[in-house]
Amino acid sequence: MIKTDEIIENLEKIGFGKKEAEVFLELVKNPGTNGSQIAKNLGYQRTTVYQNLDILQKKGYISSYLDKEITLYKTMNLKEILENYNKEINGATKFLKDELSKVEVSGTQKQFYNLNSFEEIKDRFKNILKRAKKIVYINTNLNLFEYEKELKKLREKDVRIIVFSFNKIDYSSLGIEAYIRESFNFNITDSEKRIMIAADSSVAMIASNYEGEFCGTYSENKLLVNTVTEHIKNDIHLMKLEESLGRSINRIITLDF
């Protein structure tokens, strides 16, 4: 029996994105397949599949050829792929071990990293969840049931999960602290999608699809971590204040010149 989940997980460990791994495995099982067939088998949009086929081909993991004017794909020699990867990793490990020890560290300021795709943002979001040890603050209007597996593991480790959202989604089955500001209950299809997360006062990420394209920033910089944490805390505080007053707080400021 093919251990599909374990194969995907191990492909991710050697640098494949999740969808890259799924497309690659589909080609291992069904060589000489076109993009439309792969999309149908995996249940993904064709544009998503073709994007990942292009990535895999550029990396040298698959090749394409024409058959009656239809582009078909197949994997390269699997043994050679893994042997070459192993050589590259060993070489890179030796080089980094030697060279990084020579690098002089100037200060302790943490860097900011740009995230330029939704897949990259989701992968980083999962990574933050997996690393959390004490507490996680989340502000998002995305459906968190997609991350049920990661959230369950956090609960098992007694990590406190605090979520604020403008979308009315029942998260009671996830066992997390959810605060829904219903007075601003936007529909996710009509509003800007966004993710804000901070964990353990050590790492944070902000991201959105502003103007239709997803982009974000990830950092262990304390300023960003504290800013995101306080922003989410303030959202929750404002919501509780509205509930205590029994009305929405909308303050309009006019300036007279």
Rank of each mutant, 00 (worst) to 15 (best):
Q37E: 08
A207E: 06
K122L: 11
E20K: 07
N226W: 02
D67P: 02
K19C: 10
Q45R: 13
L72M: 13
A207W: 08
E6I: 09
D158G: 07
N90Y: 09
E156D: 11
L78S: 08
G212E: 10
E148R: 15
I2H: 04
N84Y: 08
E148Q: 14
A92E: 06
K102P: 01
D158I: 01
L144A: 03
K87G: 01
F145W: 03
L11F: 14
D158K: 15
K87F: 11
V23L: 06
V103Y: 15
E99N: 12
L129V: 03
I128V: 11
E177H: 10
S101G: 06
L255D: 05
E69Q: 13
K126I: 04
I249R: 12
K134R: 12
K74Y: 11
L27W: 10
L115D: 01
I138G: 07
I2D: 03
I14A: 11
R160G: 01
D67S: 14
L56R: 10
F24Y: 13
G15S: 08
S173Q: 08
E148I: 06
F145H: 10
M196S: 12
N127T: 07
E26R: 05
K94Q: 07
Y113S: 07
Q45T: 04
A21T: 04
I128P: 01
V23K: 03
N187L: 10
T4Y: 15
G246A: 08
Q37H: 11
E6P: 02
R181C: 07
F257N: 11
E182Q: 13
N86C: 04
P31C: 05
Y171W: 10
L224M: 12
A178D: 05
S173W: 00
L238C: 07
Y85I: 00
I206E: 06
N167H: 04
A199K: 02
T48M: 05
I249P: 13
I188C: 02
I252A: 08
F95V: 00
N250M: 03
V136D: 02
G91C: 00
N34A: 05
I81A: 02
S106N: 10
R46G: 07
N187W: 09
A204M: 09
F214E: 04
Y137C: 02
Y65R: 09
H231I: 00
N127D: 15
R247V: 05
A198H: 12
E146A: 12
N209D: 15
